[in-house]
Amino acid sequence: MPISLTKLISAGATAVTLAAATAATAQTHDVVIFDDAFFPAVIYVDAGDELRFVNNASAARNVSAGDGSWSSGTLETGSSFSQTVEANSQVTFIGTSLGENPKSYSGEISFDPAPLSE
């Protein structure tokens, strides 16, 4: 059964409206990288949000997904890296110092509501 032009335009407008609403509600969450930890250690997000990792450590760091699906590469002190969170994103991220004796530490992405958010 052919679809009418009016229904097609209406469906397209609905799709554009939903996409715009999703984009408008996406948030950017800063995660600060320290020498031995992330702050916050657990970040509460929705799919489509962006994580911005900011290196405040005394030396270069690397941040990556626990499953290796993404990596920042080397982040010098003061630099940042952003990663969009998808619904199926890995929930653990790892920070690694560079050099002869690298140290690793982890943080967590949670899709649950943030405590005290309501």
Rank of each mutant, 00 (worst) to 15 (best):
L18D: 12
E86W: 09
P102F: 09
F81Y: 15
A15W: 07
N62T: 15
L116T: 05
P115W: 05
D35V: 10
T25C: 02
V32D: 12
R52A: 09
V31E: 00
L51P: 01
E108T: 14
Y105R: 06
E108C: 00
S97F: 01
I33D: 02
I33V: 15
W70S: 04
S82W: 02
A24L: 11
E76R: 09
V45E: 00
T84E: 14
T6F: 08
D36A: 12
G107W: 06
L18C: 10
S117L: 05
A114N: 03
N62S: 13
S79K: 14
M1H: 07
T77K: 12
D49W: 05
L75N: 01
S69D: 09
D67I: 10
E86F: 13
P40N: 09
E108F: 12
S10V: 02
S104L: 04
F39H: 10
Y105V: 02
A11M: 11
T84R: 14
T96N: 08
S117V: 12
F39W: 11
E108V: 09
R52M: 13
A11L: 14
L75Y: 06
A47P: 10
P40G: 09
I3E: 12
H29L: 13
E50D: 06
E76Y: 05
T14W: 05
V54Q: 11
T77V: 09
G107Q: 02
V85I: 15
F39R: 13
R52T: 12
N88S: 11
F93C: 03
E86I: 09
A20E: 13
V32K: 11
Y44K: 01
S110R: 03
N101G: 03
T92N: 07
T25Y: 01
D46Y: 04
S10W: 05
A15F: 12
I3G: 11
G99F: 04
P2A: 09
P102D: 11
A60L: 04
L5G: 01
